[in-house]
Computed example of a mutant assay.
Amino acid sequence: MSQVTLYTTQHCPYCVSAKRLLASKGVTPREIDVEASPQHLMEMLQRSRRRTVPQIFFGELHVGGFDDLAGLDQKGGLDALLHS
Rank of each mutant, 00 (worst) to 15 (best):
64 G>M: 08
24 S>D: 04
31 E>D: 05
16 V>H: 05
80 A>Y: 03
32 I>S: 04
60 E>P: 03
81 L>E: 10
79 D>A: 15
57 F>N: 00
69 L>A: 08
18 A>F: 06
65 G>F: 11
23 A>M: 13
79 D>H: 05
7 Y>P: 06
82 L>I: 11
41 L>S: 10
48 S>V: 00
16 V>E: 10
44 M>H: 07
36 A>F: 04
68 D>A: 13
67 D>N: 05
65 G>R: 01
76 G>K: 10
10 Q>D: 03
53 V>F: 03
17 S>F: 11
27 V>Y: 04
1 M>R: 15
27 V>L: 13
78 L>K: 00
34 V>S: 02
34 V>I: 14
58 F>Q: 07
56 I>T: 04
36 A>S: 13
80 A>K: 15
61 L>V: 12
70 A>Q: 09
38 P>L: 12
12 C>R: 01
15 C>F: 02
63 V>L: 11
71 G>M: 07
33 D>I: 11
29 P>H: 04
57 F>K: 00
18 A>H: 02
22 L>D: 00
60 E>H: 08
55 Q>S: 04
14 Y>M: 14
16 V>Y: 11
80 A>L: 11
15 C>R: 01
79 D>W: 03
34 V>R: 02
25 K>G: 05
73 D>G: 10
75 K>L: 13
84 S>W: 07
45 L>C: 08
69 L>G: 08
78 L>R: 04
65 G>P: 00
60 E>D: 14
64 G>N: 10
84 S>R: 10
39 Q>P: 02
63 V>D: 06
33 D>Q: 06
53 V>Q: 03
67 D>T: 10
47 R>Q: 12
20 R>I: 06
